[in-house]
Design a binder for these strands. Sequence first.
DNA 1: ACAAAGATGTACT
DNA 2: GTACATCTTTGTC
Length: 187
Amino acid sequence: MTRPLVPADFEGDSHVVAHALIGCTLLVDGVGGRIVETEAYDRYDPASHTFSGLTPRNASMFGPPGRAYVYRSYGIHWCLNFVCREEGHGAGVLIRAIEPTHGLDTMRERRGVHDARLLCSGPGRVGQALGITHDLNGHRLDRKPFKVLAAAHAVHVVEGPRIGITKAIDVPWRFGEAGSKFVSRKF
DNA sequence: ACAAAGATGTACT
DNA sequence: GTACATCTTTGTC
């Protein structure tokens, strides 16, 4: 009962897209699981990489929606965003946590830990577990190696303030599945 | 050319 | 709870 998401699903407000992505399935080369935590970053958000306009790093967020924006975090981690578009402006949704369902052994090997809760509970961990690299920046989400499937059934979504930022910390633009054991932090 | 901060994770006390 | 790795991007001089 699930359908693959297409670029049209990423047209619109980043907050709406971030909310709608909870419960969807994300696979990279068949490895991944259910998205249980996201954050929205819109064009006029001081905490967004797009706030100061187009730069070489954030260029993919100014391109077509339904693609990946991959950036290096703290010089160590690769973090994955889904590009969306609201009123012609670039915006992004950070994938913060996944409930592992496919390719657990591959993820354990990449992460070096066994506990399923520690495989994908955080944006840097998601990047490592799914094998995300800079090669995938700007890549379409409806083409290999990506696979993004709509949620099989309705999900109870909760929201709260975003994590790890110093600007606009008051807005509740972090979304997660209620009661999930696989989020990076409790809501 | 230079400096500072960063959408984090891990190890250690 | 605190410290620190690690390096790219961006703004400033």
